[in-house]
């Protein structure tokens, strides 16, 4: 099927893009890589009046060094992310998770920002952004604001990016030295979406885990932090036993969905197992 007709705007600056969104009528959609939007438009699950294409907007693509953080432009494609030296050095978790997203063709078009704003519960990057305590830079008619990851993912397919606004970049604090990280994903053959996945970021010093951050993919309508696991790990000995004991709490308080791929209780089982694996690898165990 082909999409329903729409008006098309192709701005070249962020200001022009905001204006095009403001002028676009009732139902305006921003087009980034189109790898989520075009499929839903083809199925006529979305039929926007106007599509504002960010493809030619300058300054949204690429990664830069900003002192204690790296800044990833919203239009940086998944394949750009995989090849980027700053990400490889300061936030390898992002590249690891991005490598599991979809397939080569989709990764050539799909963008880092698009995947985060789309906020699919099974999408891989939201839980990673949450575990890395990333910050989201959003612009709109009212100016520019920065939203922490903990306040970005509001509900199913819903983020802090409001109507008329754009995500322009994401700041990711540099974590070096004693930090380790790992993304552990469980999915079916030839269907890349996560049934459940876990992003673990662990700081290890003198045989102890001093801090752990655990992000859960597809354990509810939004990505989650496994706070009970994080609390149990803080200060724990870096041993397989301690990690296994803490990981038992990974599904506490979660209400994952049941669908064709997995029942809720199976997802909770997966969360515990994958958390143990993700944290163990991140801690170098």
């Amino acid at each position: 099927m082909i999409p329903a007709p729409f008006a098309y705007a192709r701005p070249t600056t962020v200001d022009e893009a905001l204006q095009a969104i403001a002028d676009g009528g009732e139902d305006v959609k921003v087009l980034a890589g189109g790898q989520s939007l075009i499929p839903v438009m083809r199925l006529r699950l979305a039929a926007p009046e106007t599509v504002v294409d960010l493809g030619k907007v300058e300054g949204l693509r690429g990664v830069r060094d900003d002192g204690d953080a790296i800044v990833i432009g919203a239009m940086t494609t998944h394949s750009d992310v995989l090849a980027d030296p700053l990400i490889a050095e300061h936030a390898p978790l992002i590249a690891e998770a991005t490598g599991t997203v979809a397939d080569r063709q989709v990764r050539h078009r799909g963008t880092f920002g698009g995947a985060l704003v789309h906020a699919d519960p099974a999408g891989d990057l939201p839980a990673v952004a949450l575990a890395l305590d990333a910050e989201f830079v959003i612009v709109g008619p009212g100016g520019r604001r920065t939203v922490p990851a903990s306040e970005f993912f509001l509900d199913y397919l819903t983020t802090a990016v409001g109507e008329g606004e754009l995500l322009v970049e994401v700041r990711v604090p540099k974590l070096a030295g004693s930090w380790g990280m790992h993304y552990e994903k469980f999915n079916r053959v030839a269907q890349a979406w996560s049934i459940v996945a876990v992003a673990a970021v662990v700081r290890r010093e003198n045989g102890r885990i001093t801090e752990a951050r655990v992000g859960l993919t597809n354990m509810g309508p939004t990505p989650l932090r496994a706070r009970q696991v994080e609390e149990a790990l803080a200060g724990a000995e870096a041993t397989a036993e301690a990690v296994a004991a803490a990981s038992e709490r990974a599904a506490d308080g979660t209400e994952p969905s049941s669908d064709l791929n997995a029942q809720a209780d199976y997802r909770q089982h997966l969360a515990r197992v994958l958390t143990r694996r993700a944290v163990s690898t991140a801690a170098g165990l």
Binding site: Y8, R10, L31, I38, S79, R104, V106
Partner: peptide, 18 residues
């Protein structure tokens, strides 16, 4: 699948205007 500026893409998931 076709190549767009040298990269494989799914041409059913790209608009001609893009």
């Amino acid at each position: 699948t076709v190549h767009l500026d040298g990269e494989a893409v799914k041409s059913c998931t790209v608009l001609a205007v893009q």
